[in-house]
């Protein structure tokens, strides 16, 4: 099968200093659901903008459906659909009118557009609000309309930039359902960015984790999870004591790393470790605030790869954390 998307050493520099995308190479085979996962400012939107011809790369190449985005932008635009991170609907128009304008811009004939729009409004559960002005829509309704606008012309390749941002859990589940059906029915290639790890896990066959414009890991969600190799027990001391010698001595501890003042003990089964860790700390006279078992998850992968807790709000990068990350890598068995 051929590749729907290929990036070769893609770089985008803003204002000579901000390396929003910093040497990304990846490929997405036709029909795959690919996820770009990363925190705020990682460069996800910039990646999508390059692939959808809205931003020119500083260097490197991006190929979409066999076409170089820099050389054949109009041809590329014909083949792609896009839902922006921030809603682009016109508030002074109704939902239906927004879709009609979108269909017209795709060159779809009016009768065909009307049928397709009715179908989409139903699927997105927007039918009852179809003839209301969008400025009166809720955030969730706007997200669904944005998605409908992106797929009105049944594109071959669909780009979704943080499509469920601001949706409640129910809305998110509904969106996932819709995407699964869409993929089954049309075989569309999906390029999705998200900072919800759960979403990437649910929807994507393959992921790239990005941080500071660079890909730090790629693979299937389960592969990535396995990288953390077993459970992690997170121990927080009440004062700044150094627990490394105590924790390393606990039988079954495979490795100990410190991230943001919390000690992370790698082990096969966390449940068996907790009592031993508590006893060891007790014996050493160290008071601990919390002990927590973490099962392998994308959150853990992210944390280990970037040395930062994966939060949904922006986390500041600290040099200290990356130093620790280096130590951890070196000290691993």
């Amino acid at each position: 099968m051929s590749d729907a998307i290929v990036c070769e050493n893609l770089v985008k520099v803003y204002g000579d200093i901000i390396r929003a995308v910093d040497g990304v190479s990846l490929n997405v085979p036709e029909g795959e659901a690919f996820g770009l996962l990363g925190p705020n400012g990682a460069g996800k939107t910039t990646m999508v903008s390059i692939l959808t011809t809205l931003v020119r790369p500083t260097s490197g190449r991006a190929i979409v459906d066999g076409l170089d985005v820099a050389k054949h932008p109009e041809e590329v635009r014909r083949r792609i659909g896009l839902a922006f991170q921030v809603s682009t609907a016109d508030g002074e128009l109704t939902g239906r009118e927004n879709l009609e304008v979108a269909a017209g811009l795709q060159g779809i004939r009016a009768p065909e557009a009307r049928r397709r729009i009715r179908e989409l409004l139903d699927q997105m559960q927007l039918a009852p609000a179809a003839d209301r002005l969008v400025k009166g829509y809720s955030g969730g309704m706007r997200r669904r309309l944005e998605l409908a606008v992106g797929v009105v012309h049944s594109p071959k390749i669909l780009f979704l930039d943080e499509p469920t941002l601001g949706l409640d859990p129910q809305g998110r589940a509904g969106f996932w359902d819709y995407i699964r059906h869409l993929r089954k029915d049309t075989g569309v290639t999906l390029f999705l960015t998200t900072h919800y790890l759960e979403e990437a896990d649910q929807l994507c066959e393959r992921l790239a984790i990005v941080d500071h414009g660079k890909i730090v890991a790629t693979g299937r969600p389960d592969e990535l999870k396995q990288r953390t190799g077993g459970d992690t027990v997170v121990v927080k001391p009440s004062k700044g004591e150094d627990l490394t010698p105590i924790l390393s001595a606990v039988p079954g501890a495979l490795a100990v790393q410190v991230i943001a003042g919390a000690y992370r003990v790698k082990c096969d089964r966390g449940e068996a470790m907790v009592p031993q860790i508590v006893t060891a700390c007790d014996r050493a006279g160290v008071e601990i605030v919390s002990v927590e078992i973490r099962k392998p998850s994308l959150d853990e992968v992210f944390l280990e790869l970037t040395g930062r807790e994966y939060r949904e709000e922006g986390t500041e990068h600290s040099g200290w954390a990356s130093e620790r990350m280096g130590q951890m890598r070196g000290g691993r068995p």
């Binding site: 959808t52 011809t53 809205l54 109009e74 635009r77 014909r78 792609i80 896009l82 922006f84 682009t88 979108a102 811009l105 795709q106 060159g107 606008v149």
Partner: peptide, 9 residues
């Protein structure tokens, strides 16, 4: 931006 992302000239 939305308009610019469509194939419309």
């Amino acid at each position: 931006k939305r308009q610019a992302a469509t194939p419309a000239p």
